[in-house]
């Protein structure tokens, strides 16, 4: 592995849906070992960017590199995407979903999956269709976090769930389950995680309006993430 490029690089990426440009020259980086948060109202291209990184959706121009290389077949053992809804069949029990993941991925780590299950106080015999919204979100998260991957992309993990589930999920970010990995998370509500993120990328209409380090902006300008958002979006 090459040194010094342990990151995801998004370089001048454009994408169209029909005639509509959804990404209009997006560039930013997400380093390994850091939590990078993509912020923007719905429809600005946050999910599209994640799908583009995973090569689930083709881009019109630009380049996306993971540790200096374009995504290839083996990359899927190194990077994982947690979509905003669970993709397992509703009649499955949690343990069936785990078997499914183990069959698919070499990087599936069953010990970590069990640890996460205990952390979230869930039972492996719980049926996915019987779970509350908050608990479904937790299982969805486990399916991604139990992989031994360097990068985890999470699409709106806090959206539409109760406050206690949100707190529990936020706790994961302060633990060894995230440590040393590169995380990209999208959200439109920053409040729960303002203290937890290393970096922010503000998006609007398919462009990056601002990219900054959260501790640096507090230190140099005395501003909260929300202060900066207000400046950028209300300008």
């Amino acid at each position: 592995m090459e040194w010094g490029i342990l990151m995801i690089e998004i370089k001048d990426v454009t994408k169209k849906f029909g005639k509509k440009k959804v990404l209009n020259g997006v560039s930013f980086t997400a380093e390994k070992g850091k939590i990078t948060c993509l912020i923007g109202i719905n429809g600005v291209g946050k999910t599209t960017i994640m799908k583009a990184i995973m090569a689930l959706s083709p881009i019109a121009s630009g380049e996306i590199l993971i540790d200096g290389k374009k995504i290839h077949k083996e990359s899927y053992e190194k990077i994982t995407f947690i979509p905003d809804t669970i993709t397992m069949l509703p009649q499955m029990q949690i343990r069936d979903a785990f078997v499914f993941m183990a069959d698919f991925y070499d990087s599936w780590n069953q010990a970590r999956a069990s640890e996460l299950l205990r952390f979230f106080k869930l039972q492996e015999t719980d049926r996915i269709s019987d779970l509350s919204k908050g608990n479904t979100a937790k299982v969805n998260l486990i399916l991604g976090l139990a992989m031994d991957v360097d990068y985890v992309l999470m699409d709106e993990p806090f959206s539409g769930i109760d406050i206690f589930s949100r707190e529990q999920i936020a706790d994961v970010f302060t633990s060894h389950l995230i440590e040393d990995r590169g995380v990209i998370i999208t959200t439109h509500e920053i409040n729960d995680i303002e203290h937890l993120i290393d970096k922010v990328v503000l998006l609007d209409n398919g462009v990056v309006l601002k990219e900054f380090d959260t501790e640096e902006i507090r230190e140099k300008e005395g501003k909260s993430v929300v202060d900066v958002m207000r400046e950028v979006y209300e300008a």
């Binding site: 939590i35 936020a170 706790d171 970010f173 302060t174 633990s175 060894h176 995230i178 440590e179 203290h195 937890l196 993120i197 290393d198």
Partner: peptide
């Protein structure tokens, strides 16, 4: 990090 709920 765990106790204070902050980033490691």
């Amino acid at each position: 990090a765990n106790q204070l709920k902050i980033n490691p």
